[in-house]
Design a protein around this nucleic acid. Structure first.
Lengths: 239, 239
DNA sequence: TTACCCGACTTTGGATCCATTCTGTCAAGC
DNA sequence: GCTTGACAGAATGGATCCAAAGTCGGGTAA
């Protein structure tokens, strides 16, 4: 759509996710318009969009407030993500996995292997893993060839920490985090192995379990403040 | 939100679902505003909302067009619905089904039994079944107590014929349709039996399969015209 | 002193106006 | 004859204005 609308939407989204707009804070159109230097109109378009994304909720009959994201919300979204991605994995196998898809997945495996085989942490390892991980999940969802899954996942992934497009790293325990991602990558291997063998149901189960690789960090949200400084969030855009 | 917006949204939704606005038809704001007797503003709010619901799609950089709903889209949405409702059923069992929930489900079973036990068709049977069916599915989703499932299902159900809130009846084969619904109701019985016995995984599988009770009618959409006259669609609102 | 009602102010929803951008058509040039 | 470019018309995005609805506070009466 419009330039101003896109800018307002992106700005508000960023301010909410970063905690600049505190959970529970009431948002009214005019102050936001002044703050962002636009008229009320782009704000009026953006607020319902952010409500759709689950970042805002209506405050009574008038106005919106920033939604308090609870650990439970993220855990719920991760469970749904695992279920839907599991379904996609099974459908991918049942419909017959194409050579191109299989090659794409194997390329992801190789890229992940390259990160982990030298056994030591290097600058850029996390972003490299993250990029590969997004591709891996994206390929499976696309190969599931079910439009409703794609749509449902896109909406479910609006909660940043629930999405396969973001990973959260505890920078004060890098070695441990490295092992955690390594384990997740071994799950990638098993998923591809199952898919290649035509084991759709096994692929589904593995994919479901794999979503839990992110679950550990939902505890962080039991505090109502933003993430502690030692955590780093990497968020990417699908595709 | 506003009165005019709600009216515009409802009117447009009805006109799209009924085929009054043909699939592929291009929608521009001013003619729609004139048609509904409102200003452009409510229309401008309604069109993105209908795009979110999957009833419209963007037509290039300017304007929207009515989305062509394919049989495949509905089949996809039904598969996702079965998967998510299955997840809800399992969670309901695993979290411990409450007395109130169980009693609600059993009430649905009794209401359904009342429809089928006298063995003959009566006026209002389909609407009675439909009301019960909505409650049954609603109770299970609510008892799953996973907010992401609720949200995902609400969005997935925007396609009318994919939702548990609508049933489609072939009025030229009423006796056969009666049997079809009877079979679906027997699945309800099995689901409750599994839930009561703590068989979460069995409940999940049954619920998944149960979604297919609606699948038969996706063939109807292979024609690009609206439904034949002998089909009757009953659509309800959840809650 | 407390509860209820009335009024003023704030905020949102709707309409209209203006500017920008896109699209389609027609003509000219290659 | 086909392609490209320019111009005109139309549609959208953004801003401002107006009306209606809601909320908050104060005052009065019980």
């Amino acid at each position: 759509m419009g330039q101003q609308f896109q800018r307002a939407l992106a700005s508000l989204r960023r301010m909410i996710v970063s905690g600049e707009l505190a959970p529970g804070e009431r948002l009214t159109e005019i102050p936001l318009a002044d703050l962002l230097g636009v008229s009320r109109m782009p704000i009026r378009m953006a607020l319902p969009a952010l409500e759709q994304e689950g970042l805002l909720e209506r405050a009574g009959k008038r106005g919106y407030r920033v939604r308090q994201i609870k650990a439970e919300d993220i855990a719920d979204a991760i469970e749904v993500r695992g279920t839907l991605e599991g379904l996609a994995a099974r459908l991918m196998v049942e419909k017959g996995i194409s050579d191109k898809t299989l090659e794409g997945l194997k390329a992801c495996l190789r890229q992940g292997d390259a990160v982990f085989t030298d056994g030591q942490l290097r600058e850029g390892d996390f972003t490299a893993y993250h990029a590969m991980n997004m591709r891996f999940h994206g390929i499976i969802v696309a190969a599931g060839a079910n439009s409703a899954i794609t749509v449902a996942l896109a909406r479910n992934d609006a909660l940043p920490l629930a999405s396969a497009n973001s990973i959260t790293i505890d920078q004060s325990h890098l070695a441990q985090e490295f092992k955690r991602l390594h384990f997740a990558h071994m799950q990638h291997h098993l998923i591809v192995e199952a898919a290649e063998s035509g084991q759709g149901s096994r692929a589904e189960g593995l994919m479901r379990e794999h979503a839990n690789a992110a679950l550990k960090y939902t505890d962080l949200f039991k505090q109502d403040s933003p993430l502690p400084d030692n955590y780093r969030v990497i968020i990417g855009r699908p595709g």
